[in-house]
Design a protein around this nucleic acid. Sequence first.
DNA 1: GCCTCGATATATCGATCCGATATGAGCCGT
DNA 2: ACGGCTCATATCGGATCGATATATCGAGGC
Lengths: 230, 230
Amino acid sequence: MLDLAVLGLLEENDLHGYELRKRLGELLGVRLAISFGSLYPALNRLEKGGFVKAVTDLPAPVGPTAPMSGSLVGELAAFRAQRRATSGSGRGTRGKKVYGITDAGRRRLREMLADPDVSDDRDFPVRVAFCHNLDPAARLELFRRRKAELVRRAEQRSGGPTGPDGRVNTYLRSLLERDTAVLAADIAWLDRLIADESDTTTDKPESDTTTDRPESDTTNGTTSAPISTP
Amino acid sequence: MLDLAVLGLLEENDLHGYELRKRLGELLGVRLAISFGSLYPALNRLEKGGFVKAVTDLPAPVGPTAPMSGSLVGELAAFRAQRRATSGSGRGTRGKKVYGITDAGRRRLREMLADPDVSDDRDFPVRVAFCHNLDPAARLELFRRRKAELVRRAEQRSGGPTGPDGRVNTYLRSLLERDTAVLAADIAWLDRLIADESDTTTDKPESDTTTDRPESDTTNGTTSAPISTP
DNA sequence: GCCTCGATATATCGATCCGATATGAGCCGT
DNA sequence: ACGGCTCATATCGGATCGATATATCGAGGC
C-alpha cells in the first residue's frame, strides 16, 4: 500500500523521503500521514527492487511529467540537498536522498492500480488518488469491482441474523447502523464515480453483462457496513 | 486494540481462541475479523500480564455475568475441550485452552476503555462495542472526546487550502468530498449517542463548559474527513 | 556573538498485526 | 476406511506504527 503511494507521488515528481511524507499528508488528509518507520524501509525496498532510484541529477525546475506541481519548498529543499550532495566529496556529506521513479516502477504502479483484489479498505482510497495513471477502461473496471465488493458485504449483513440469537446491546446496534449508513453512502459514491467515468468514455453504453444501473442495488436492502472512522 | 477486544469478550464469557475470533467477526462485521497470527500472541501476552488466565473449571451453563449469550456451539466446544483436558492424563491431550478474565483484567479493560487518547480510528469502534462496561459519566466523556477529535479534524481541513496551490485532479476532489461526508455523518452519529446518553443519565443537563449543543458544529463548515472504507 | 528553538531530514528499534502456512484432532458421509 | 469438513492451536515473515536518536540549518531572542 505504501509502495503504491510512493510510486504514485514519484510518478509526478522526484522527491526525497521527508517531502514524500508531507505530500501524502496533505493529499489524503491528516490520517494516512505515513510514519517514517514505514517510509524509509519502503524506499529501500523499492530501490532494491529497481522501482525507484536515487537520482543524482536535479529534477527540472519545470517538471518533465507534471507541469508545475505545488510545494516549491520541497523542490527547493531537494535542490539544496542536491547541491550539498554533489559539491561535497562523495562520502561524508549527509545530503538528502532524492528519489525518482524508473520504467519498472511505472509498470509496477499501473500493475498495482489494476490489481483485481479490491477488498483492502486502506488500499482503495490510495488507488483512487492515483488512478489517473490508468486508462479509462481499467479505471472503470476498478470502480466496478470495488462496488461489487461493497454490495457483497452489504448483502451478507442484511441476510444473516443480527447476532447469535437476537440479543445485541444498544451500542452494538448503533455501531451496526452507522456502518450500514457508511456502506450505503460509499456504494452511492462509487455509482457517481462510475457514472462520471462512463460519460467521459462512451456516450452510448453498450449492453453490459454486469450490472450498470445504480438504482436497484442501492435501494435494495438497507444492507450494512464495515467499521472505520467514527 | 486487540487486547481490548479480547478482554471485552472474556468479560462476558470464558472462551478459547478460536471461538474468540468468531465472535469478533460476527460482532464487528466481516472486517476486523482478527487473524490468528494476532490473536494467539495477544492471549499469551495477556496471560503473562495476569489479565487473563487459562481456566480449568467449566463456564457455568447459564453464564454468571452475561445471561445466556449466544453461540451454543462455542460453549459446547468449550465443554468438550474441558472434558478432554481434564479426563485425559495431564500432558499429552491437546485440549483447547479456555481463557477467563481476572480482576486485573477487568481493571485493565475499564482503564483502556476510558483512555483519553481517542485519535485511533480503528480502536474507537471496539471501545464503543464494549462501552457498557463503563459508568455513564465515563461513557459520555468518551463520546464527547471523540466528537471533539472529529470536529478538530473537520475544522483543520476546511481551514487550509485544498492543495499546495489549488490544483487537484478530479479523483482527489471526489475522495475529499467523500471523506467530508463520512466525517460529517460520524459527528452527527456521535451527537446522537451523546444525546441518548444524556437522556438516560440526567433529565436536566447542568450547564457545561464544553460544547453540548449539536446544531452549531455540524452545520458550521462543510469540513472534511479522513479516509476509510470506500 | 551566542544560544536556543523549531523545521528539515534520515534512520533504527521494538511492538503489533496480518496473511499464509503447518499440524492435528474429531466428525460425517459414502 | 477413506477423504474431506470444521475445529483448534501455533509459528513465520513481512508491513506498519510510534517513539526515539541524530544531525543540519535558519530565525529569533538576549
